[in-house]
Simulated assay, not measured.
Amino acid sequence: MHWALSSLGDPVSVTQHGVEDRDGVLVRDITYAGLEAEPVRAYLVEPARTGRYPAVLYLHWFEPPNPTSSRLEFLDEAVARARQGAVALLPDLTFPWSVDPVGDRRDVANVVAQTVRLRRGLDLLTARPDVDRSRVAVVGHDYGGMYGLLLASVDRDRIHAVVAMNVDATFGNWFATFFLGLSGDATIAYEELFEPVDPIRYVADRGGVPLLFQFAEPDFFVPDSTRRTLVSLARRPKDYRLYPGAGHELDAAARADREGWLTERLKG
């Protein structure tokens, strides 16, 4: 696939629409230039004090009409991490949030385009003078976590830790089941289109990037067999944690584990 469409290293244009000071943490409402200068809506969260910090790219889940099915999901976590000393980018993802799957190769192209927008977000973070480029992490939930697993492989030279929360192994499965209502041979043919971009193809090939899997047990959306396959294919270093009864949204225990795991891997 044409991952190089990102034009990595080029300056990323940013427009600020507002800023809020949350007791020493600045939450900036921005858009940045994504694929072919398309604006990507995001929060940029940073300490108000000067310094050189680790950075985290947070990628939200798909759960409309829940308002946390957006850049809002991880905002409190990003603010808490900024108080400890970190910069965070929280973009709004668009596929399949605002663009529905249609059932053909255009859906694969939209997965690639979404990944490129996120790579441009990495460009934005790693170009900042207050970001330590040797301490950059990605945290993703649901579809956001699936995109995070792609980034952890494609951008292994820029990413140093990844958290994947309640992720599926393939894009086509959820699209076919929950959006398109496909079955039988139609499902098989459709899922085959996504093989070049499926997380299960990338999870093993991270170049040593540490990975934390977080899964609810049980999870209606992620069968035990899918979870076990993903975890078994992932090469070390990896950690694997289950949260009984937490639901697909996960819970406070998962957040505490995630924050502790990231703190350990992003310390200077």
Results as ranks from 00 to 15, higher is better:
Arg71Met: 09
Tyr58Asp: 07
Leu72Gln: 07
Trp61His: 03
Val136Asn: 06
Glu20Asn: 12
Leu124Cys: 05
Tyr32Asn: 03
Leu59Cys: 05
Arg120Ile: 02
Pro54Gln: 12
Gly51Asn: 15
Asp92Lys: 06
Asp92Arg: 07
Asp104Trp: 09
Arg133Lys: 14
Gly34Arg: 06
Gly121His: 13
Tyr58Glu: 09
Glu46Ala: 06
Arg71Asp: 00
Pro39Cys: 10
Gly140Ala: 11
Ala48Tyr: 01
Leu124Asp: 14
Leu149Ser: 08
Ala37Asn: 15
Val27Pro: 00
Pro96Gly: 11
Asp123Ile: 04
Leu151Met: 03
Leu151Gly: 04
Leu122Met: 06
Arg117Trp: 02
Gly145Thr: 05
Pro91Val: 09
Pro96Ile: 01
Arg81Lys: 06
Ser70Thr: 10
Thr68Ala: 10
Glu36Gly: 11
Thr50Tyr: 12
Tyr43Met: 06
Val136Trp: 12
Arg71Tyr: 08
Pro54Val: 15
Thr94Pro: 02
Arg120Gly: 02
Asn66Ser: 08
Thr68His: 10
Thr31Met: 04
Leu150Gly: 09
Leu26Glu: 04
Arg28Ala: 12
Asp130Tyr: 15
Ala80Gln: 15
Arg105Phe: 09
Val108Ala: 01
Thr31Val: 05
Gln84Gly: 14
Ala37Gln: 12
Asp92Ile: 07
Leu57Lys: 14
Leu151Lys: 09
Asn66Trp: 02
Val79Glu: 13
Ala42Leu: 03
Tyr147Pro: 04
Ala33Cys: 06
Ala137Tyr: 04
Leu89Arg: 14
Asp132Gly: 00
Leu35Ala: 11
Gly145Lys: 09
Val111Trp: 15
Tyr58Arg: 07
Glu63Arg: 00
Arg52Phe: 06
Arg119Met: 13
Leu125Phe: 00
Leu35Pro: 02
Gly18Leu: 04
Phe95Trp: 07
Leu118Met: 14
Val131Leu: 12
Ala137Glu: 05
Arg41Ile: 06
Pro65Glu: 01
Val108Gly: 00
Val108Tyr: 05
Gly51Trp: 13
Ala82Glu: 10
Glu36Pro: 00
Phe74Asp: 04
Ala109Asn: 04
Ala109Gln: 01
Arg28Glu: 15
Arg120Val: 12
Gly51Cys: 14
Arg106Ile: 05
Tyr143Arg: 04
Arg135Phe: 12
Tyr143Asn: 06
Arg105Asp: 15
Ser70Ala: 03
Leu89Val: 11
Val56Ile: 04
Asp29Thr: 06
His141Trp: 08
Arg119Ile: 14
Val19Asn: 12
Leu122Phe: 05
Pro47Val: 08
Thr50Asp: 13
Asp123Asn: 05
Leu59Trp: 06
